[in-house]
Structure formats: C-alpha cells, structure tokens
C-alpha cells in the first residue's frame, strides 16, 4: 500500500538556530497508529508541524495523502490531516466550547443540521457535554485540552496528528481519550501521536518512532523498540514500569528470547508462566 505520510530526507533548522531535524526518513502506511517519542527539545513538534504545513518543507520532501506539503495550502491540507496543538491555548479562540468544536465542521461546509449532532457527539466523546455552553477561558487546563481535542477529532480526517493529547488528564481520562483515538484508528484513520507517557505508548501504539536530537534512532514495532533498553537510555527514555520490572526480575522462560512485557495484564500472565516453569522444574 502507498504510504499516506512520506518524509524523504527532511532537514530543518529554525532561523539563527542549530539544526533541529537531521535527514529524516519516515514512511507511514494508512491505518497505522504511530507513537512519536523523545526527550524535551528532541524535535517532535517541529517534525509534525511539517506534516500540516505550519512549517514548510522544501519541495518534494514531505508528502501527505498524495499532496506535496511544500506547495499545498494549510487549509487544504487540513481536509486530510487533523492537528491538535501541544498547547490547547494555541488552538482555542472561540468564546463557547460549542462554537470551538463547530468551527472546523462549518469550514467543511456541512449543513447546520449535520453540524449540531456532530458537535454534541464529539463533546460527549470527550466527556464535556455538560460544558458545551461554557467559555473555554473559564475551564481548567485539562478541560481545555479536551476541548481542543474534540474540535479536531470531530473532523474525522484520514490522518490525525496529536501533539501530547493527554496532558493534564488523570488515569481514566487518559484511557478514555486513547480509547477514542484507538476506535478512530480501527475505523481506518492513520494516527500519529506524541507523548511522554510510555504506558500509553505500550498500550496503544503499534509502532514507535524515537527521535533523539533531531534524528530517528529507533523505529519499529512497539515491543521491539522497548526491547532496546540501551538505545532508549541513550535518548534518555524509560520503558514503562512493568517492562523494567520484568527485566529486573530476569526470570527466563523456556523461550530463547526474554519477553518484553508491556502491560500489567501481560505481567500477570508472565508471572503465571514463570510459576508454572518453576513448578515443573521442581517436579522433575
């Protein structure tokens, strides 16, 4: 299948600054769910801004949904790519939550009777239906984050780029948001999300791209990436706590490679198997 995002040797530096992206190659196929991780200042936001045209790549270097970002207007790209800013306050400018969410839908030219139910649905998806008529400036930061999210998810664009979508959310809210994103992914949307929360990465991403000082140093299946503890340490990242726990336990099973544990469920299963191995061993 043709990649929906294709970055072909992209380098970038802000004016009068050091180089921030160094020779990036990245292809993402339709329907993938990719986590983009890396330490503060690694260049994650800078990279994804090139996907929506907020930063202009040189011609031919970045293609999204068969459009060359270099010469496509942002407003046109936005029909293919939804983008949630890292800071919700960069996105919100209306004086009611409802109007904020309706804005993009109206720009799609949808008839009024279609916009309203979609706004309602988007708000209830993120658990904000009771705040529809509030002024976003009077919501808590985490609530504003979800307003920003709803205003983009409502657009149902083929590609969705989320820059730290769960900032300031508690455990259940994080799960709610990511379940929503996962549902969109299952329905065929391509997702790229940036996060510092490695448990979210472990739970929801099928592929992880690790950015370190402007370079992609790891890119692959989530489990394989979390296996590379040395490389991760080099970019100052830590795998989820259970992953580290299983590593430190260092209890081999009968398999040749030691397993990479990504969730509490898997850990429980793993402990079960270790016990069985021990019991059988004792019985010999």
């Amino acid at each position: 299948m043709n990649p929906v995002i294709k970055i072909d040797g992209l380098s970038f530096g802000y004016e009068f600054g050091d180089s921030v992206l160094k020779d990036i190659y990245l292809e993402i196929s339709p329907g993938e769910m990719v986590a983009l991780v890396g330490q503060n200042g690694a260049g994650k936001t800078t990279l994804v801004k090139h996907l929506i045209g907020l930063l202009r790549p040189p011609a031919g270097k970045v293609r999204v949904a068969d459009l060359d970002v270099a010469n496509t207007r942002v407003s046109k790209l936005s029909r293919q790519v939804g983008y949630v800013f890292q800071n919700p306050d960069h996105q919100i400018f209306h004086d009611t939550v409802q109007a904020e969410v309706a804005f993009g839908l109206n720009n799609l030219g949808l008839p009024r009777e279609e916009v309203e139910p979609r706004v309602t649905a988007a708000l209830s998806d993120v658990g904000l239906e009771h705040l529809a008529n509030e002024n976003p400036q009077r919501l808590s930061r985490g609530q504003r984050q979800r307003v920003a999210l709803a205003s983009v998810l409502a657009l149902r664009t083929p590609v969705i780029v989320l820059d730290e979508p769960t900032t300031g959310q508690d455990y259940q809210e994080r799960k709610q948001i990511m379940a929503l994103v996962e549902q969109l992914n299952k329905a065929g949307h391509t997702i790229v999300f940036i996060t510092h929360d490695m448990s979210l990465v472990a739970h929801y991403a099928s592929r992880v791209v690790v950015l370190c000082q402007g370079q992609i140093i790891l890119d692959g299946d989530t489990r394989e990436v979390f296996r590379q503890t040395d490389k991760l340490a080099e970019s100052l990242l830590l795998p989820p706590q259970v992953t580290v726990l299983a590593n430190q336990l260092n209890e081999p099973l009968n398999t040749s490679v030691s397993p990479v544990i990504l969730s509490v469920d898997e850990m429980q299963e793993y402990l079960q198997r270790v016990r069985e191995v021990k019991r059988n061993g004792a019985g010999d």
Partner: peptide, 16 residues
C-alpha cells in the same frame, strides 16, 4: 498569527 494557524489547520481558507 497563532489564531490564524488555528483557523487554517481546521480548514478556514484565510491562506487562500
């Protein structure tokens, strides 16, 4: 400028 970006990324053709 920031609001301009926020408009564009949700399809408002101010860059047209």
């Amino acid at each position: 400028i920031q609001v301009g970006y926020a408009q564009q990324v949700r399809g408002c053709p101010i860059d047209s």
